[in-house]
């Protein structure tokens, strides 16, 4: 027999923020020690292991420094490549999809959402608390991994010159996790098959829209994120250079502004959807 979880925000007695923090506390433990964390660990530890392997191999006298297309890459350039191609273009969106879409959808699938909704707390606080737990969980695993990769790859002598870029990279990764997480929290709360939709958005829509000249790329998150870290963006082909000629990169303030709008808008939409929607729990 199907159960219904009808909206009932009228009985919320706990303040929103207090309720969100309680849900955060509860959800953080669940997220940290869940099966999904294995994926997170692979995504975070993988690049660290890769950088250690690269460092060991390049230190070996018979191999020398890493070369791409016959061009030597120093530690800082290699780290920039790693941040751009692996973290910003892959790890961040994938974590956003897998964690964000699962915030509410997992509770619905496990039929445990009722236990959260019967508590005397605003429904929106459930989503916000879970979202904060995702951000803490993903951020506190990904950012240290980026930090360790930096110190493994970049020589001590280059740290004074490259450290500001690392701070920017860390901030952009955290911002990416926040915005992608907010978007997919809403997708998870609103759509029936959020994981598929999320993967299509990240690996389909964003990839294609960024290549098409015109305004479509403004409907992606990657467009604004990449404008914040152009120092890490590789331009390794004539095609990408030519695309660059026709590409107007948004300014830092424009990018930050739009990312803030996306973040606040999708988080509000997600909280609103959870508060207003009646979830039917299939038997």
């Amino acid at each position: 027999m199907a159960q219904s979880s009808a909206p009932h925000d009228g009985d919320a007695r706990t303040p929103f923020l207090t309720a969100a923090l309680r849900v955060f506390d509860l959800s953080l433990g669940e997220m940290l020690w869940s099966r999904r964390t294995i994926l997170l660990l692979i995504l975070a530890v993988g690049p660290v292991a890769l950088t250690i392997a690269v460092r060991i191999l390049s230190s070996a006298t018979h191999l020398g420094p890493v070369q791409v297309n016959g061009v030597r890459l120093d530690g800082a350039a290699l780290f920039g490549l790693l941040v751009w191609t692996l973290f910003i273009r892959f790890v961040v969106p994938v974590l956003g999809v897998f964690y964000g879409t699962g915030l509410i959808a997992d509770e619905v699938d496990d039929k445990t959402i009722t236990y959260l909704f019967v508590r005397p707390i605003p429904r929106g606080a459930v989503l916000v608390g879970k979202y904060l737990a995702y951000l803490a969980c993903a951020g506190l695993i990904t950012l240290p991994a980026v930090m360790i990769s930096y110190f493994v790859l970049v020589p001590l002598a280059s740290i004074p010159a490259t450290f500001p870029s690392l701070v920017v990279d860390l901030a952009v990764i955290l911002l990416g996790l926040a915005v992608y997480g907010a978007l997919f929290a809403w997708v998870g709360a609103f759509f029936r098959r959020p994981l598929i939709l999320g993967l299509v958005f990240v690996f389909g829509w964003e990839q294609v829209a960024l290549l098409i000249p015109g305004y479509l790329r403004q409907l992606t998150i990657a467009y604004y994120l990449q404008a914040l870290v152009p120092q890490a963006m590789p331009q390794d082909s004539t095609l990408s250079m030519l695309q660059g000629l026709f590409r107007t990169m948004p300014t830092t303030m424009t990018s930050l502004g739009w990312l803030a709008v996306f973040w606040a808008g999708f988080l509000w939409l997600a909280a609103r959807t959870v508060a207003a929607r009646e979830y039917i729990l299939e038997p």
Binding site: L140, I141, L143, P144, M147, I148, Y150, F151, L156, A157, S158, I159, P160, F163, P164, L166, V167
Partner: peptide
Amino acid sequence: GALLVLVAGLGVGVVAYYTGALPGSPA
């Protein structure tokens, strides 16, 4: 643990940035 890694890394970086080099490093 995670915060310690972050704070330690940022601390080392800030020292290196403001002094121009890490004490004892080739730079």
